[in-house]
Design a protein around this nucleic acid. Sequence first.
DNA 1: AATTATTTGTGCGTATGTATC
DNA 2: AGATACATACGCACAAATAAT
Lengths: 379, 379
Amino acid sequence: MDILSTLIDKRVNAVLGINSEKPKYQLLKEHIIQEIESRIYKPGDKILSENELAEKFNISRHTVRQAIGELVVEGWLCRVQGKGTFVGRKLNEKGDKSRTIGVITTYLDDYIFPSIIRGIDGILSSKGYNIVLTCTYNQHDNERVALENLLRQNISGLIAEPTKSAIPNPNIDLYHRFEDSGIPLLFIHGAYKQLDSSFIVEDDTEAGYIAAKHLIDEGHRKIGGIFKIDDIQGHYRFSGFHKALLEAGISLSESKVLWFDTDDKHIKLSSDSGQLDFLLEQCTAVVCYNDQVSLRIIDFIRKKGLSVPEDLSIVSFDDSQLSVASEVKLTTVAHPKEVLGELAAKTIIDMISGSERHYNIKIKPELVVRSSTKNINRR
Amino acid sequence: MDILSTLIDKRVNAVLGINSEKPKYQLLKEHIIQEIESRIYKPGDKILSENELAEKFNISRHTVRQAIGELVVEGWLCRVQGKGTFVGRKLNEKGDKSRTIGVITTYLDDYIFPSIIRGIDGILSSKGYNIVLTCTYNQHDNERVALENLLRQNISGLIAEPTKSAIPNPNIDLYHRFEDSGIPLLFIHGAYKQLDSSFIVEDDTEAGYIAAKHLIDEGHRKIGGIFKIDDIQGHYRFSGFHKALLEAGISLSESKVLWFDTDDKHIKLSSDSGQLDFLLEQCTAVVCYNDQVSLRIIDFIRKKGLSVPEDLSIVSFDDSQLSVASEVKLTTVAHPKEVLGELAAKTIIDMISGSERHYNIKIKPELVVRSSTKNINRR
DNA sequence: AATTATTTGTGCGTATGTATC
DNA sequence: AGATACATACGCACAAATAAT
C-alpha cells in the first residue's frame, strides 16, 4: 500500500491533510523508507530528484527537502550537489570507510566474552580498526538502543552476539538496515533464525564427541558425565558425548550421567552430597561440563584419599586458566575463545574489503591433553 | 571577536557575503556555538527566538531555522514548540536521562583494564545502566572519533581514561562539550592537567611505600628493588619504596635497585644474565615491580637450589591471578582494579543523580600478605 | 574548451497551524 | 483571550557542482 499515492490528487490530498495526523514531509519520509526497505532502491541507487518528487506528490520542493534532510541525518540517504540523492551513507573525504567496527555482546564479564573480545581486539587493532563495544545484558531493549546508536555512527562492519537467540527478536528490522546500507553483519556464538546472515560459532557437539572419544581411545569403557542442563552448550556437549559412546558400542546407562543447573550446582557437586559417589563406584573416567566442575571433582577425590588420574580420569571443556593453575593439569577440550574472536575479526575485514560476503563457519574444537587422564591399558 | 557582529550592517553584510567563503547559516551556527562555549549561555538557558535572531542579524527566519536545525542535530540545542530554543540536549519522553554511560579506555586487552572494565560493568549493569565502550589504542585521533560519537549519543555520563595524559591533548574542546552539556565527566587512571575534572586514580607511591614498609616491619634491612623505567607507575612505586627506606634510616645503595624496560626485561631478568645475582648476595628481601617479575625471580631462585621465602622474601604489586596460581602464594600490594572500576561506576552515578559534582579520589592500595615473605627475626 | 541542462545548496518572502504562558 | 514561540507549508531566485553535449 503506497502511503502517498493518494496525494497525487490535489483534492484527496487536502482531505488527507485533515484526516491524517501526520505532516506531509513525514508521509514522504515513510514512503521513501518503505521504498528502501522493500529493495525498490538499493544502496548506491539514485532516487528521484527533489523537483521530481515535488511534482509527483504535488508538494513544494521545500517540503521535499525537509523530508530528505531528515533521512540524511538518520543515515538512510546522502545528497551530492550536482548529482542527486542516493541511498546509503556518505563516505568520508578519501572515499574509504571509517575503519570502525561495532561489536555487540550480551555481557562483558561473562566467563567467555573477555577472551572473545580480546581476540577481536587483537586483530582489529593491529589492522588499524577501532572498536565500539556495547553489551545488551541479554535485554532486547538494550540491544535496540545499541543498534540505533551504531546506525548513526558510520561503522564499516558489525560483529554481534545474538540477544536471546532462542526466541523471536524484535530488532530484526534494525539488523536489516545494516544489510540495506551495505554494512557487513557477522554473528558470533549463535545466529537469529529470522536472519540469513553470516555467523561464526563453536561446535559444542563436536567438543563433547572429542572428549568422550579421547577417554575411549585411552581404554576406558565405564565413562560418566556431568553436564549443565540450563545451558544449551550442556545439551550439545552431552549430545556429542552420547554419540561417541554409541559409536564405541557403549550403552549409556542413565545412572552414569549427572545433570546440574546454575542453582543446584553447589549442592549436587559438593563433596558430601552423595551425588558424586557413583563416579568412583561405577566409572574409570568422567567427562565434566567445564574446568570448574573438574576442579570440584578433583577436590572430592582428594578428600576420599584418592587421586587423579590414577583413580579417575577426567576430561573437561574450555581450557580456561583454571586448567593449568591447579597441581593436576587438566586435559580439556579447548573452546575457541580468542580464536573465535580473531576469526570473527578477520572475517569481518574480509567482508568489508573482499568480494565474498557470506560466511557460515563452525569452529572445530581441539583436545588439549595434559595430566588428568591416563591410559588404563598401559601400566 | 564576534563573528556575526558585522552582519548587522547590511552593506557590510553584502561585502562579507562575498569575501567570506561561508554561508550565513554557517556563520550563525558558529556564532551560537561560540556563545555556548564562552558560557554566555549555559545548559538549560533559553536563547534568542528565531525572529529575534533574524532581526538582529538581518537574515531571514528561514536561514535562522536552518542554522538552529543543524545545531539541534549536533546536540548543541533543543527546540520546544511554544516555549523557545534551549541550550543542551532534549530529554526523553519521561523526562529522565538515557541511563547509558560512555566508557573510553586506552586498551581493552591491557593487563589492568579487563579488571577495571569488569568493575565498572558490574556496578552499572546492576543499577540498570548500559555501557558503550570505546578504546583509543592511545591515539588522539581515535579518541576524537570516540568523543564525537558519544556526543551524538544521548549518554548520561562519561568515564574516560586519558590518552597520552603526559602530553597536551588536542581533544580538550570535545571534553568541554560534555561539561557544557551538563554531562558528568570522570577520569580514571589519570587526568588531563588542562581540564579541572573529577578523577579517580590509584596511589602508586603509597603502594611502593607499603611494600617496602612491610619488609622493614618483618625485620629486613637489606632490601633490593626491581622497577620498570618506561612506565610512570614504576617511577611512583620506586618513589614510595625509597621513602620507606629513608624513614627507616636505610641508605639506598644504587646497586640494590635494578631497572628494566619493556624491551630488555627478557634479557635482564633471565636466569643466566647475571643481573639477578646481587639479590641473593646482598639482600634478604626484594620488592618486584609486579607479579610477573616475582614469578621470574622465584624461578631464578629455584634453579639456584634455594627457595622463597626461606632464602629471599618477595613483595610485588597488582595481586593478579598469577599471585595465587603458583605454589608460592605471593605477598603483593593489591592494585584497586575492580574496586577502581566499581568506585568509578558508583561515582558517575552519584554525579548524575546527586548534587555533588566534583570528585578527586586517590585509592589507597592494600597489602595482601601471603607466603612469599617471612620475618627474619622469628626463627 | 565552452555551453547547457540538471541537481542540490543557499537565501529570501509569506501564510497558517499549534503549543505554551 | 492574546501574545509569543516553534512547526509546517507554499512560493521564488540564484549559486555551485556535475555531467553530457
